[in-house]
Design a protein around this nucleic acid. Structure first.
Length: 302
DNA sequence: AAGACGAAAGTGGTTGA
DNA sequence: TCAACAACTTTCGTCTT
């Protein structure tokens, strides 16, 4: 079980409110996790491999068909089941019904698109254990994209993934394209393309992700103390200030900073461990770490 | 035995002519 | 559209603890 720390007050004590289905910080009342009952999968995953294997994909069947397959088709011929001509006022009524049904179908196309998109969004957000606000931000982005007619001609899957990727960044808890791709049905490349398109279409300000934003998540995964994570952030900020981070991958930098910080704070982690949570190689951790130590004149002994 | 280090070759994506 | 390019990965041998 991963140790949780309140992002507001730093407290590690929480209680679970079963009535509301929320995990709440005992000190300041910050809601750490909402909708536990509804969002989580019914199985438990003890490691990432299991999570990948156990996760089922795909929307519920009923959402694939907007009306759960219960709609009626009204035949275009003005005849009853015996093949007899229908005449008079009943015929006009039939024609009116046909017209309404056609209108509803057109209206439904957009709804159906949205329903499918949102169910996919739900699935991905749940699998990634993302907080509700991220999911809602993604849904809002997607709706805006629909209104601006940006979805037409591209895959819904790709655009939903892109919206989720963007939402994570906007909300300050970025996920990598690889992480999104792991729960998506489309490739990383496709998500990247869709994201750029979405960002341009909605005029999102796409500042590159700062490595600092990965420190808390990676640090938690490594069970590092608040103090060490803070140290890592300081190191990164200094590195950014001196401009030795430009062009480098943010995850690799975050990993290296955490590695150095773990040494400095006496909470030593191996390069292997750090590399693993950041999904980079040891070599990358090593290279970044070497640069940091060299350029920032950090004295790392032991 | 495990971790750290570094060299060298390979890969995929961006950039600029 | 193509080639150059930097970042990152893979692989592997060596040194250190």
């Amino acid at each position: 079980m991963q140790e949780r720390v309140c992002p507001v007050c730093g407290s590690k004590e929480f209680f679970f409110d079963p009535r509301r289905g929320e995990v709440v910080c005992a000190k300041c009342g910050y809601v750490l996790q909402e909708d536990i009952i509804e969002e989580g999968p019914e199985w438990r995953a003890f490691d990432p491999e299991q999570r990948v294997r156990r996760a089922r994909t795909g929307a519920p069947m009923t959402l694939m068909i907007h009306d759960k397959g219960l709609s009626t088709d009204i035949d275009w011929r003005d005849r009853d089941i015996h093949g007899n001509q229908i005449r008079g006022s009943y015929r006009t009524k039939l024609r009116r019904l046909r017209m309404w049904q056609r209108r509803m179908r057109i209206n439904d196309a957009a709804e159906r698109n949205l329903a499918f998109a949102l169910s996919e969004l739900d699935r991905m957000a749940a699998q990634m254990h993302l907080p509700r606000r991220v999911k809602e931000a993604a849904a809002a982005l997607y709706r805006r994209a629909v209104m601006k007619k940006l979805i037409r001609g591209r895959s819904i899957e790709g655009m939903v993934s892109a919206a989720l990727y963007a939402a994570c960044r906007i909300e300050g808890i970025p996920r990598t394209l690889d992480e999104i791709a792991a729960v998506s049905k489309v490739t990383k490349k496709e998500i990247g393309r869709s994201y750029r398109f979405l960002a341009r279409g909605l005029k999102l300000n796409l500042k590159p992700t700062s490595p600092v934003e990965y420190v808390d998540r990676f640090g938690d995964a490594l069970n590092l103390s608040q103090r060490t994570k803070k140290r890592a952030k300081e190191i990164l900020r200094e590195a950014i200030r001196r401009g030795i981070t430009s062009g480098k991958g943010p995850t690799g930098l975050a990993a290296a900073a955490l590695y150095v910080a773990s040494l400095l704070e006496g909470e030593r982690k191996t390069q292997r461990e750090v590399a693993e949570v950041a999904h980079v190689t040891e070599v990358t951790v090593r290279n970044r770490y070497k640069e940091l130590v060299e350029k920032l004149r950090l004295d790392v002994q032991i």
